[in-house]
Design a protein around this nucleic acid. Structure first.
Lengths: 243, 243
DNA sequence: TAATGTTATTAGCTTTGTCTAACATGAGCG
DNA sequence: CGCTCATGTTAGACAAAGCTAATAACATTA
């Protein structure tokens, strides 16, 4: 009954124990090992540690039982897991396996505040009419699931909306050296899009064109204080609002 | 130049090195240690491992430099960090420090697919008119920032919307033993709301009322195959659509 | 009762990542 | 030239998690 804190791995064990106790009324070392894809030899010491923390009642070689404290923790972790999985699946629409894996990784690290606000976002998207409308236009966007061309129009509208008082939208490739622009949209698909995002090019970041190679092809930009070089083809996919 | 993979900690070091090189043109062990809040003695071996992985050029006692490979990795990690931070701050509106901490924890574990879809969601919310409209109603909701009562109306509408063909909405406290309901809304604030969420009570989960104590106060429910007990006061905050 | 098989525990080893404390190196100064 | 100080490196310890292999404790079966 120490006053140490649960590590991620211990939280996982606790969650597993809870699920086993719920589903088949008993948790044995062997089942826990199988559920967590770990050898039995790793489970015993983990159980001892959980017992030291006052989370489980653990008499060697007998069945494992949660204390009220452990049950409370386990439920909290499981609830986190569930809402994260649902967020990834229902809102972001990633594949179920990825959703599961990402939820697993996040459930131990996300702050209470982040979790709380994410939950509110989730509820809002599912419950509020604005949210539901948004969600359906998000999910039907060709960028996520090829469907209608409607969304591209939205994007064009969006540019206007960000724009506000009618600045000129152009691509980074059309800026002149020394000119700055605020990113309104990153087009492109697949690896090329990923590359642009990997460089930190996102809506509402400011880009300054530093210089253009004599041939016109590699283009050097400055972004959040960093120099980067872009192919002309890449640069043309980034829409900016000249500032 | 091994073919091992970067661990989370090494990614953090790499990110730090990149930022130091960018901001002050040189990365020394001491600066890295300070930036990461570790002792210098922990940095040296980490640098050696990064060098083994071909991420940095590292001559002992001299300044540290990124290889093109390392630079690519660092940029990707940093971009993840930035978009996660922005998502937490701008979309979820958590406090800046929490946003930073949560982004830090997630940047190493989130899958490429999850990251990609999250980025699209972010862009959509910032660029698409539906998204922008939704976002502003989300942010002005009294549950996030006490403001107008407008959102509660939305919620009421939302219930209708989830409802669809006009079932009866009531609170869990009003169900009869054996009756089931689908959660449409979780009201309440602060710890009591947190407790309900910690038990896994979310929109669109199914709850069955198992039994009610003779006095009427503790209420036992079944949720995702688990038995839970609720105070009457808590149960009355959960709206369900009788199924 | 003895033999066999399943399950749990333990001991010993590995990796990662941290710490402290001792030691090394080089720069600047007296 | 040699001292001192800031900075880097190394060695040794420790904790968390995992693995394997040996052993212990039951349970079943012959």
């Amino acid at each position: 009954m120490q006053e140490t804190v649960l590590t991620g791995a211990l939280e996982d064990y606790l969650e597993t124990v809870y699920q086993l106790v719920q589903s088949r009324k008993l948790a044995r070392v062997k089942d826990i090992a199988r559920a967590r894809s770990v050898r039995a030899g790793s489970v015993s010491p983990a159980m001892r540690r959980l017992a030291d923390l006052g989370m489980i009642r653990y008499v060697q070689r007998e069945y494992i039982d949660l204390t009220p404290l452990g049950e409370e923790h386990a439920r909290r972790i499981l609830a986190r897991h569930r809402i994260l999985t649902r967020f990834f699946r229902e809102i972001l629409q990633v594949t179920p396996e990825t959703a599961e894996a990402d939820a697993c990784a996040m459930e131990h690290s996300l702050s209470a505040e982040g979790m709380d606000h994410l939950t509110r976002l989730f509820e809002f998207l599912r419950v509020c009419p604005d949210g539901r409308k948004f969600l359906s236009s998000f999910h039907s966007c060709p960028r996520i699931q090829p469907a209608s061309a409607e969304c591209m129009l939205h994007h064009r509208d969006g540019t206007e909306a960000i724009d506000g008082k009618g600045g000129t939208t152009r691509s980074v490739a059309d800026l002149k050296p020394g000119q700055k622009g605020r990113v309104t949209q990153v087009s492109g698909e697949g690896p090329i899009r990923r590359r642009l995002l990997d460089m930190g090019i996102l809506p509402d970041t400011t880009i300054e064109l530093e210089r253009v190679a004599p041939t016109g092809d590699p283009i050097w930009i400055k972004l959040e204080g960093m120099q980067l070089s872009l192919r002309r083809k890449e640069a043309s996919l980034v829409s900016v609002l000249a500032a």
